[in-house]
Nucleic acid binder design. Structure first.
Lengths: 209, 209
DNA sequence: GCACAAATCTTGACGACGTCAAGATTCTAG
DNA sequence: CTAGAATCTTGACGTCGTCAAGATTTGTGC
């Protein structure tokens, strides 16, 4: 359906949305500027008015991923303001769910599709905001005395936890875990087993929301 | 330099090696069948005598990565046959070092460049062999009583540890950790902080070999 | 209200890529 | 020695990222 106006009106966002849809339909390798342009109903070179190159579209899509996670973190923080452990557990589960539900959007957001993060300040800012949110939660958990390993530097502990979450999500969405395990063990149980290593209190399934 | 014989002689391996070099020089996004062919001194379609498509070359390169890791695991197991904790710590460090020294070879091996692992049996076998090696080490560590979290299922613990290692390596080689942290903290220290969460005994730097 | 600059979009081109088909060359089994 | 298999080359096709030139629309200063 050709559009009526010569100008699209909101092409930049349309391209980002088209890109996200392509990721869901065809995965990271199926994402191309030309396909996003087609989906938005414009010619193949139109995106260059809004994105200097493909990397910049990817950075915008990745920033959107970070933003979605951050919004969840904020909502969780508000809903469980007085319970840092719940913030931690439910936040971790929300993070994992984003990966499981939108695997390729997750990959493009967190797994190095951006060559030089330093040249995409918007992405960098969103990324740091999430890192800071995680650190805050962990700091509060430590104060509450619910984390084990309190002898290690708290920033290093945050990195460890993020690494664990990130690695686990990637192994899952890429089908790299033994298939028998994937069929018998719900993701939530794997997450609990992993997080239990960092949490002094026993974690029940209900605690993940 | 054109070669003397019409037949290359060992093109399959030459393409794999060329691919690994390209990964080191230009990264994952610079890897192409045509470039590997050029590097091996053959025409652009010659690779198709040995690899059905690009995915199959990638799978071969990834298998090589798995093999390199596995050989290290075997050597470490032999050298510290009576000390499972050392096997675990030194093995983990070797794994991380492969990632740090050959980041793009690591990525292609462990980070989902292969679309459908099920259709590359060679890769699958190497991959499972490494997973099994990790499980064996962890099992022996548990028997020796040096791991914490012995209440969780041992396979889930193995997955957690692999996830932690994998995630940490990826965050490092993709520069996703806070830059201040990366400059001040050696990789070995980050690894120790992470592994300490799983190990009852205090880990000293020397224990990583 | 109008000329003109800026923003946006189209068309057309280029080289690189993955892949296939047809044919040339070499190896190997019988 | 010969026929077929394996290997390699050449040439083609469609897709892609990107750039340049030009068309269309929007916005701004007067």
């Amino acid at each position: 359906m050709p559009r009526k106006t010569y100008h699209h009106g909101d092409l930049k966002n349309a391209l980002i949305q088209a890109g996200i849809e392509i990721l869901a339909e065809e995965g990271v390798s199926g994402l191309s500027l030309r396909k996003a342009a087609r989906k938005a109903g414009v010619s193949h070179a139109a995106p260059y008015a809004h994105f200097a190159d493909k990397q910049n579209l990817i950075a915008a899509i990745a920033s959107d991923g970070h933003k979605k996670i951050f919004e969840q973190f904020e909502a969780i923080r508000a809903r469980h303001a007085d319970d840092p452990l719940r913030q931690f557990l439910i936040g971790a589960w929300a993070y994992m769910q984003f990966g499981l539900e939108s695997p390729d959007h997750y990959k493009i957001t967190f797994s190095g599709a951006i060559q030089d993060e330093h040249s995409h300040p918007e992405f960098l800012e969103y990324s740091q905001r999430n890192m800071q949110a995680l650190r805050n939660i962990i700091e509060r958990c430590r104060s509450a005395g619910v984390l084990s390993g309190e002898d290690v530097n708290s920033e290093l502990q945050a990195v460890s936890i993020w690494g664990l979450l990130h690695g686990l999500v990637l192994l899952m969405i890429q089908g790299q875990l033994p298939s028998r395990l994937m069929q018998t063990t719900p993701a939530k149980d794997m997450l609990i087993a992993a997080l239990q290593q960092f949490v002094r209190v026993p974690i029940h399934k209900k605690m993940l929301g």
